[in-house]
Amino acid sequence: MKKLLLSILSVVFILQLNAQKVYGTKTGQISFNATGEAVKIIGVNNQVDSKFVESTGQIIFGVLIKAFKFENQLMEDHFNENYMESTKFPKADFKGFITNIKEVNFSKNGDYPIVVEGTLTIHGVGNKTVTKGVISVQNGVPVIKGEFAVSLKQYGIKGSYIGDKIASDASIKLNCKY
């Protein structure tokens, strides 16, 4: 009886080891720069919600548009009201996979280049995207960093200042510590 129980126990333990480990954060950072000709337009959001599964590489990001902070209030209001229409589209999100997650060794410190593939939805418009990034593992804690550009036009973001006072492509930086 004892032996039987112990062996079941060890089998379950092994299964347990195989169970999916999910990393998550609610305080990831995403910032963007859409500076056009004159005024600096930089928004920062420190409340990025993200999770990824170690075994499958499945990854999601959720960003509340209103949580972007700007240098002044009016810019924030314009961003929400006139461009992102955040009442209608309160969130932007990304759903996809880290395609080469197997190359990341979460038990060894280091920087691992990754490729992320999936659907980025901003302003209610979803686009398939592929982008590169890095997972830095530091004592078992992964940090995902990435930089990419988003064409405002592709996401249906309109306004007469785009391409003039506002850049037509926003550069985006991501930094999430899980």
Partner: peptide
Amino acid sequence: SQEVDLFNE
């Protein structure tokens, strides 16, 4: 912990 599907959370 099995069958985690983040997309359908």
